[in-house]
Simulated assay, not measured.
Amino acid sequence: MRRLSSESAVLTDEYAIRIGRWSQYAGSEALPFGAMWCVVPPGGSSAPDHHPEVELAVVVGGRAAFAVEGREPEPTPVGTAVLLDPEERHVIHNLSDTEPVTLLSIYWLPEDPAAATAGDVEVARDAR
């Protein structure tokens, strides 16, 4: 077992927040996905972002809100996972003026970008 903690991760400034890429951990290159810790400072927000990967962002600490595709920010409590489609524009807001928000971001390139989107997953789930 390996323990990968956001509290001991080496963080760098990227996207107007602090990022701890999992490439810093031995053996992470064997994982079938990329991952990083994201720390949004108190009262702060990430820079607007979009990318070709599918992203699963899990709020592990703090009071977050996600604004997706220019919509109003939606509160996203601890324990909530947000699944973002490729190229879906998003911003992460910290709703607290005193505590940081910590996220675990897991991302991967879809096997077939035209067919494999988070929206398709939702449709398939609803069809059951």
Score class of each variant (00 low, 15 high):
32 P>Y: 09
13 D>T: 15
11 L>F: 15
32 P>C: 06
105 S>I: 11
14 E>M: 13
62 G>W: 04
115 A>T: 09
55 E>F: 03
115 A>Y: 01
22 W>M: 13
44 G>C: 03
114 A>Q: 13
89 R>E: 14
56 L>E: 07
117 T>I: 04
111 E>T: 08
88 E>G: 11
59 V>Y: 05
68 V>F: 03
65 A>K: 02
112 D>E: 10
59 V>C: 13
51 H>I: 08
35 A>V: 04
28 S>T: 14
16 A>V: 00
36 M>T: 04
76 T>P: 00
1 M>S: 15
84 L>H: 07
60 V>T: 14
100 P>N: 10
70 G>M: 05
115 A>W: 01
24 Q>G: 13
101 V>N: 01
99 E>S: 12
62 G>C: 06
2 R>K: 15
48 P>R: 09
29 E>T: 07
121 V>P: 01
40 V>G: 03
5 S>K: 10
113 P>T: 06
98 T>L: 06
127 A>G: 01
48 P>Q: 08
14 E>G: 03
101 V>F: 03
57 A>Y: 05
23 S>V: 09
27 G>M: 06
27 G>K: 07
49 D>S: 10
37 W>M: 07
125 R>I: 12
110 P>G: 09
74 E>A: 11
92 I>T: 06
84 L>F: 09
123 V>Q: 11
45 S>V: 09
42 P>M: 09
124 A>V: 00
4 L>M: 15
30 A>E: 12
104 L>V: 14
74 E>T: 12
98 T>Y: 01
77 P>N: 08
11 L>I: 05
82 V>D: 02
25 Y>D: 06
4 L>I: 15
22 W>S: 07
95 L>W: 01
13 D>N: 14
77 P>F: 06
13 D>P: 00
